[in-house]
Write a protein that binds this DNA or RNA. Structure first.
Lengths: 124, 124
DNA sequence: CTAGTTGCAAAGCATTTGCCTGTGG
DNA sequence: CCACAGGCAAATGCTTTGCAACTAG
């Protein structure tokens, strides 16, 4: 049972407010406002605990540091958009179909990862 | 103009024989057979040079170390398959359509990354 | 109280760089 | 020859861990 500390509360709030996947550095930046001397290792440890608790889920974008998003949004299958200008990652809804047609014979498809790249609404 | 050394030749051959994207460690493993005391930093430096020369192109799979494949295969748009058992990455042909339908209003789509996950022919 | 958390500093790992030796052209 | 390439070791950057001090319950 997780102990309710200021640090943990600030990190929880960072995710609730961001509404998009956050990297450890983004979490630190967001939560430092509330807990000034928050340490990066605390962020890493807390992210791991939250992941074990099933509160957040990892989101990985090719060539980018790992990010995390709230598990309840990760539950319904979705994909991500990476803005090349501001570097932020956004959630998308919907999913392409017919992916199994791309498979060579004998391969078994279990899941897939799709990331769209371009400019977000603010940067375009 | 690149100098033709034993190390470079061994790395070139590793890609030619592999027929699939290779990570720095995989390159080292493959090329060490020919050049026993091949150094990892040489692999990293050579991969960077080959990338600058346009001989190879980076392939990144979420949660995996970076890999590279021969540029002539990277030229025609394709995607990749990652086997969760043996960890190898394979080329796929074909590409899903209608991805721009997934975009929020105002977002600009420039490119996309698709990775299928599952079991390869040998592991299934 | 006292076990779970945190901060800080040191350890790890993958990748990069400095520097001097070796070698291809 | 001699400038580019390679080996080795140190430096880097991100992430993890050890440990003593702190604090929520």
């Amino acid at each position: 049972m997780p102990r309710q500390t200021q640090q943990r509360a600030a990190i929880d709030r960072a995710f609730a407010q961001a509404q998009r996947p956050l990297s450890p550095a983004e979490v630190l930046a967001a939560a430092t406002g509330e807990v000034p001397n928050l340490n990066l290792s605390t962020v890493y440890r807390t992210l791991r605990r939250m992941q074990e608790e099933g509160v957040i889920a990892p989101v990985s974008v090719p060539g980018e540091p790992p990010r995390y998003e709230l598990a309840h949004v990760a539950e319904h299958h979705h994909h991500h958009f990476h803005c090349r200008r501001c570097g932020r990652v956004f959630d998308l809804s919907g999913c392409p179909t017919g992916l199994s047609k791309l498979l060579p014979r004998g391969f078994v498809l279990e899941s897939h990862t799709l990331v769209l790249h371009g400019l977000c609404g603010q940067c375009a």
